[in-house]
Design a protein around this nucleic acid. Structure first.
Lengths: 197, 197
DNA sequence: AAACAAAACTAACAGGTGTTAGTACAATTA
DNA sequence: TAATTGTACTAACACCTGTTAGTTTTGTTT
């Protein structure tokens, strides 16, 4: 088990991470026991430690994996000079909606359980989030200056945008008569139309 | 200690309940120990049980107290025939914002920790929430029919409205250059303007 | 076939969990 | 003053927690 190790080890650890994300979301980080997680993976609790360092490490990897994905996409949008301010915001919100729909477990854990990160990870995470919000505010400020966006409090607008998509959690629970595409369009129209001048 | 008992017991229990709400929000329900709570109240853990039946009971009372407040206000708005559909929605969203600002601990516990309710309380709670959402959808449907509200998916619009105000959590953490009144007006404009025809 | 390493197992640990039993004190009522 | 009652205490319980140590099984490479 030498050359295949990395691949095998990788997928095994990914399995554990995905199972952890689902459990952390459903039961919360604190209420998820290593024996619960082991049971889902089909193994004894102690065996997990051949693949991970600790329960905390699982949470860290989930939170920063998601945080990095969001930051990378924001970078892309900022660098795209063909978009005006409203279009930039729309692209960002669409990305958030997609993430909430496609990667609900990890995104919800990142949103709701990150407070259980140990230091210094928690401080780092909060700081990254603060910077992310600030960069979104700047897009709105620029849009207002250029007359593309209605005069609003940029900080309040960002909070509204980022939080609104959290409602997808409930849509996920009760698959209704409304498709993910319809949900996305409705949310985009509602949120972005409220900002257009 | 007979005639004053109810009053004294009442305020003591209220103290415990408020301390519990704050701890449940900060640390989460599962991570809040009875010894933590007792420490905050200034008492030994076992002494709490002279006032409460169980840790679960504390969560139940918080969740249903808040749920009842929201339902009662919705009832008032529904019964107010002087309001058109947009005005009804605005009144409801304003109430949500006020609750999120003034009673953050209890509201956040209700939103984030209700999953730890024991059965049948959890099922009851989820059902009440489903009905609440349905009643909001009906207000939007009526507004669309009357031509007061833009054609949107009522369910998606409700999710967006109810979730957007959750952003107040972050405003609460980092008291910024923006007042609660400004925050409320910005959110109302953003959210309700996105629905007007 | 021998060697090796990944990954599973069992057993156990030190500490934490909500809660109960039994008791003592302190203040109010009769 | 005696009785009563609310509220605090200490001690303990049965169980659950994340994690480690040591060992065995499993599957691949030489």
């Amino acid at each position: 088990m030498a050359k295949l190790t990395n691949r095998k080890n990788g997928t095994r650890k990914e399995m554990i991470s995905l199972a952890a994300a689902r459990l952390f979301r459903e039961k919360g980080f604190a209420s998820t026991g290593m024996r619960d997680l082991a049971g889902d993976v089909g193994v004894e609790a102690a065996s997990l430690y051949n693949h991970i360092r600790s329960k905390s490490e699982l949470l860290q990897e989930i939170c920063f994996r998601i945080a990095n994905d969001f930051t990378a996409q924001l970078q892309d949008v900022e660098n795209n000079d063909t978009l005006n301010s409203i279009e930039k915001l729309e692209a960002i919100v669409r990305f958030h909606i997609t993430m909430w729909i496609d990667r609900l477990d990890e995104v919800m854990v990142t949103n709701n359980e990150s407070k259980y990160l140990e230091e210094p990870y928690n401080a780092t995470f909060l700081n990254e989030r603060r910077i992310y919000v600030r960069r979104l505010e700047q897009i709105i400020e620029e849009g207002i200056k250029k007359g593309q966006i209605r005069k609003v409090q940029p900080y309040a607008a960002v909070l509204t945008l980022l939080s609104a998509v959290r409602g997808i959690e409930f849509w996920h629970r009760t698959k209704k008569n409304i498709s993910s595409a319809e949900l996305e369009e409705s949310m985009i129209i509602h949120l972005v139309a409220g900002l257009k001048k």
